[in-house]
């Protein structure tokens, strides 16, 4: 019993540590004006949340968060940052009070909502009954793939994933339509440079 309680305490400490780090990074992002530092800190924020997802046993989500949040969106935000100014404009005092009121109200509502949540890992919670158990039971016979997340994503919910692929493709299409193809705008930049010289 002592070992079990010790493990529980260690998990609780890790959770508190990670969430505390997230809070500190969040406050730092809110107080900063340098866009470069904000982009870097948001990458760190994603990396810490990925670590926290691992602690919650959601490894697939953690992997996606680390690859997308910490990897590619940091690079994309850096690219977008180069098109604009390096620092954000300082806000007036009145403009600062409204966001903090919104944050406090939303946070209070979320904390109030957690009272009704089932305990973490509760086998009787709605997430762990109905289709969830069904997939767990049927995947070994029907799909024979060890990673049930992949089985649900690509086979049981293959049609949804097709739609998601379409969404990603459409997003790229929209950005290309707005900003133009990379090579043409690059040529335009080179021409501007030449005109200057």
């Amino acid at each position: 019993m002592i070992g079990y309680a010790g493990a529980d305490l260690a998990i609780a400490l890790i959770n508190v540590l990670l969430l505390g780090l997230l809070f500190v990074v969040g406050v730092a992002i809110a107080r900063m004006r340098s866009l470069f530092a904000i982009v870097m800190l948001s990458g760190i924020y994603s990396l810490i949340s990925a670590t926290w997802f691992v602690a919650l046993d959601a490894v697939d989500v953690a992997f996606t968060e680390a690859a997308v949040g910490a990897g590619i969106s940091t690079a994309l935000l850096l690219g977008a940052m180069l098109l604009t100014a390096r620092t954000a404009k300082p806000e007036t005092r009145a403009m600062r009070i409204v966001p903090i009121l919104v944050v406090i109200a939303t946070g209070a509502m979320l904390v109030y909502a957690t009272i009704d949540l089932p305990a973490f890992g509760d086998p009787d919670s709605p997430a762990n009954t109905y289709v969830g158990t069904d997939y767990l039971e049927r995947t070994p016979e029907e799909i024979a793939v060890p990673n049930i997340v992949t089985a649900v994503l690509a086979s049981y919910r293959g049609f949804d994933t097709l739609g998601e692929t379409g969404v990603v493709f459409t997003a790229a299409l929209a950005v290309i339509l707005l900003l133009g193809f990379g090579e043409r705008s690059l040529a335009a930049t080179f021409n501007r440079k030449k005109d200057k010289n």
Binding site: L83, I143, T165, A172, V175, S185
Partner: peptide, 30 residues
């Protein structure tokens, strides 16, 4: 099931890699 999943995941890989790279080029190419 095995090869079907592998093939659709290959489709996802191509679509995601191509889209993300296009978005990056659209931003960084400027």
């Amino acid at each position: 099931q095995h090869y079907g999943i592998l093939m659709v995941e290959l489709g996802v890989l191509f679509a995601v890699a191509g889209s993300m790279l296009s978005i990056f080029y659209a931003f960084a190419g400027r």
